[in-house]
Simulated assay, not measured.
Amino acid sequence: MEDQILQTRDLIELQLASLMRLMAVYGLNVIYAIIILFVGWWAASKIAGSVRRACERSRHVDETITGFASSITRYAIIALVIITVLQLFGFQTTSLVAVIGAASLAIGLALQGTLSNLAAGVMLLFFRPFKVGDYVELAGNAGTVKNLTMFFTELATADNVMIIIPNGDVWGSAVTNYSAHPTRRCDITVGISYDDDMDTAKEVFHKVIAEESRILADPEPFVEITNLGDSSVDVTLRVWTLSSDLWAVRWFLIKRLKEALDEAGISIPYPHMQVVGQAPVGAEQAGR
């Protein structure tokens, strides 16, 4: 009996010692894991910032790639930190890969939108339909591109309002890039009176075009009669200018054309309505 009690006591002491050793090992691992997570998170932000600054200093890398490269660097480092922490607790790399593979289907179903945004971000970076600084229309929103990350595109409207659009919506809709080409065409249509001379009006248009140096000579400016409206003869002007000068040229032409037409005595009619009244029945009989 005493031998059995001694054997049981030794077994309990052995198990307690083993448990204490495990607690000591895993307790240290928990501390190490916390330290690694904090340091890894800090390092991810610092390294991502360094990547951004390096890309900004390079003349061969534009701002679109800068934001995307910084974002993907940060997330890649965080993923490595998580794998390192799991290995501290006995997860082998092969086992971890198997677990990730088994969980990928569930994660993919749960994060369909996020993963589609990631894939769309990669496609946007590869095909480059726009770059940072371009004025675009994406998914029904217009603004200047400020940033392209792994998951979303940031726009700023003309009144400096920030718009965040998921990359999946950007890739799945039509992209209108107003800054893609160096030149753009400015179209203005002005109506003149039917009593005015059309050739004189066209000469006035050509003189105004000659006053503006920002209007390009090639392609040649277009000035023609394009429509006989209800109350006016429409003269259409089409000129080409640099994309950066488009609105300034348009505002100049609108103001200067009005002034030049007034100087030449050519009127710009406006729609008017003529009301024709019918005399009362009694008044007609009295007149008879």
Results as ranks from 00 to 15, higher is better:
residue 167 N to I: 05
residue 168 G to T: 02
residue 168 G to P: 01
residue 168 G to K: 07
residue 168 G to A: 15
residue 170 V to M: 13
residue 174 A to C: 04
residue 174 A to R: 12
residue 174 A to G: 15
residue 175 V to W: 08
residue 175 V to K: 08
residue 176 T to G: 00
residue 176 T to D: 07
residue 176 T to A: 01
residue 177 N to K: 15
residue 177 N to S: 08
residue 178 Y to V: 00
residue 178 Y to A: 02
residue 179 S to M: 02
residue 179 S to Y: 15
residue 180 A to Y: 06
residue 180 A to H: 10
residue 181 H to S: 12
residue 183 T to G: 01
residue 183 T to K: 13
residue 184 R to L: 07
residue 185 R to D: 15
residue 185 R to K: 15
residue 187 D to G: 00
residue 188 I to G: 02
residue 190 V to Q: 07
residue 191 G to F: 10
residue 191 G to A: 05
residue 192 I to C: 09
residue 192 I to L: 06
residue 193 S to P: 00
residue 193 S to K: 13
residue 194 Y to W: 13
residue 194 Y to K: 07
residue 194 Y to M: 12
residue 195 D to V: 12
residue 195 D to R: 12
residue 196 D to E: 13
residue 197 D to E: 15
residue 200 T to R: 13
residue 201 A to E: 01
residue 201 A to M: 10
residue 202 K to M: 11
residue 202 K to V: 12
residue 202 K to P: 00
residue 202 K to F: 09
residue 203 E to K: 05
residue 204 V to C: 04
residue 205 F to Y: 10
residue 206 H to K: 03
residue 206 H to G: 00
residue 207 K to T: 13
residue 208 V to K: 02
residue 208 V to W: 03
residue 209 I to R: 06
residue 209 I to P: 00
residue 209 I to G: 06
residue 210 A to Y: 08
residue 211 E to L: 13
residue 211 E to T: 03
residue 212 E to R: 08
residue 212 E to F: 13
residue 215 I to N: 12
residue 215 I to Q: 01
residue 216 L to M: 14
residue 216 L to K: 14
residue 217 A to V: 04
residue 218 D to W: 05
residue 219 P to F: 02
residue 220 E to L: 08
residue 222 F to N: 10
residue 222 F to V: 00
residue 223 V to Q: 11
residue 223 V to P: 00
residue 223 V to D: 14
residue 224 E to L: 04
residue 225 I to F: 12
residue 225 I to Y: 12
residue 226 T to H: 09
residue 226 T to N: 09
residue 226 T to D: 12
residue 228 L to G: 09
residue 230 D to C: 07
residue 230 D to A: 15
residue 230 D to Q: 13
residue 231 S to C: 07
residue 231 S to R: 00
residue 232 S to T: 04
residue 232 S to M: 10
residue 233 V to F: 04
residue 234 D to I: 00
residue 234 D to W: 15
residue 234 D to L: 14
residue 236 T to E: 06
residue 237 L to R: 02
residue 238 R to T: 08
residue 238 R to K: 12
residue 238 R to N: 10
residue 238 R to A: 09
residue 239 V to Y: 01
residue 240 W to H: 13
residue 241 T to F: 07
residue 243 S to V: 08
residue 244 S to N: 05
residue 244 S to H: 09
residue 244 S to V: 06
residue 245 D to L: 08
residue 249 V to Q: 02
residue 249 V to T: 07
residue 249 V to C: 05
residue 249 V to D: 02
residue 251 W to T: 06
residue 251 W to P: 00
residue 253 L to K: 03
residue 255 K to R: 12
residue 256 R to W: 08
residue 256 R to M: 06
